[in-house]
Design a protein around this nucleic acid. Structure first.
Lengths: 259, 259
DNA sequence: AAAGAACGTGCAAGATCATGCATGACCTGT
DNA sequence: ACAGGTCATGCATGATCTTGCACGTTCTTT
């Protein structure tokens, strides 16, 4: 459908939005969609790139290159398998629900995979997750305050627990350091374990996310019983023995590559 | 339908409403709709843009850009002048002190200019600022929780005020929407003003940061008396009249380019 | 290595813009 | 009532912007 009436800046904004939603744009496709010449689209993309609003490539454009800081770096160059896993995990989230998301690279991939325009209420104690949500005007964002463990990238401690007490999420993605067949999900520190235990108690459903296949971990602090979680998300390939063991713990769904 | 009798302000309001409803307006369409010349419409749009009620673009206007989107800070390169200004502001921070930093592009530049290896305790209600601090292992980070205003990029409201009550910073960098010679520093919303007022009360010293030279602003909610702040930081060039006026308010130090 | 697609640049036409000036309506103080 | 000032508006003018087309260059693919 041709659009003879469109403001220049408006088109720039639409291109940027399309770029955000689809992850890439083609110059030729944009030209036919907006009913302008390819030259105009090229100029638009050049202008956006000059403002840092996109990254110009041969044939079209990509989302803006990540800032040099370490914490937002993994957005563009995410392995396909990890992205697919995150998309599967993101499908657990229903529109309009209240979702808690913990710190961690797996959780960051999950929040990146959530549909940007469907309204949800995101609750998090991780600044990196919260900063990510700032690009999503359709979401509500509730931040858990407190002293932030820099290494962990998450607020913990008494203040965080107090903030948490006001929240009852529909679904909580909790990053864990490992599974222990007897103790359940485990963490590396007492404060971390206590926080995860509280959020698991308050959430209607719990999904745990691990980077590796660590069923028999040595992390010393049990956070909550493994049977409390409905979903387990493994970033790495897991053995069928692990899947069987987790299944016996009462976990409903396991999202992972099995081999 | 020709409208021979229409007040100027009335037309402005109608244009603004149409802009809200349709997301864009064309100068030519407005001219025929209100039966005035395109020049008049252009003047109207210019006036609206000057008040921040719309964003003027070639051919018409768009809704006002989200206020000081901190997260839209995708511009990789920071203007030299802005960087120098931020460095000057960062020198206000003493090693080991507790520093509150508000949301805003100016504040983001300031936190980026802080020496990465000198230990400080950073307190913030802005996820973008907090995410930045994650790259600084030498710092302590305390996050203020609460419901985050996405457009503003900062946690506000009751929960944020409660978290704030536990903190007494040595120095607070507070982003403000404008100065008013009688009311002091001002903000765009009541919640925003209340938060800034509280942090200004609790801090030993206050530094306010503005993007523009807006001494006589129309932002309706006074946050705190201008004399309460020891430092004023202007991202843009300010007139010597502004500097003189602020000096009379009792502000100790003014960091800006004067002309 | 060659073909084709994509790219950047220069150029011209048309639209849009800022500015200055003139006109008429309205307000204000004598 | 009258004179002077203020304001919104319309028109003219020259500058600026956007867009499509042409041409030569660069990149990708076969």
């Amino acid at each position: 459908m041709p659009d003879p009436d469109m403001l220049h800046e408006e088109r720039l904004g639409l291109i940027e939005a399309k770029l955000r939603n689809e992850g890439r744009v083609f110059a030729a496709h944009l030209a036919s969609e907006f009913d302008v010449s390819v030259d105009t689209i090229r100029r638009d993309l050049r202008e956006l790139a000059a403002d840092g609003r996109c990254q110009r490539v041969y044939g079209g454009a990509l989302p803006p290159a990540p800032r040099t800081g370490t914490h937002q770096q993994r957005r563009v160059q995410m392995p396909d398998r990890k992205r697919l896993l995150a998309q599967a995990a993101a499908r657990l989230v229903e529109p309009g629900s209240v979702v808690f998301i913990d710190a961690g690279t797996t959780n960051l991939a999950i929040v990146a995979a959530l549909p940007p325009d469907t309204p949800i209420t995101l609750v998090t104690n991780a600044p990196a997750i919260a900063a990510f949500a700032l690009d999503r005007p359709a979401w509500r964002l509730i931040q858990i305050g407190g002293v932030v463990d820099i290494a962990l990238g998450a607020a913990l401690g008494a203040a965080a627990l107090r903030d948490l007490a006001a929240i009852s999420p529909d679904l909580a993605f909790i990053g864990i350091c490992g599974f222990d067949v007897s103790a359940g999900a485990t963490a590396h520190s007492l404060e971390e374990a206590e926080f995860k235990r509280q959020i698991a108690l308050r959430a209607r459903e719990v999904a745990v996310a691990l980077t590796d296949d660590k069923l028999l971990t040595q992390a010393p602090f049990p956070a909550f019983a493994a049977s409390a979680c409905a979903y387990a998300i493994f970033e790495a390939t897991v053995s069928s023995a692990t899947i069987a063991a987790i299944g016996e713990l009462g976990v409903k769904t396991i999202i992972a590559d099995a081999h």
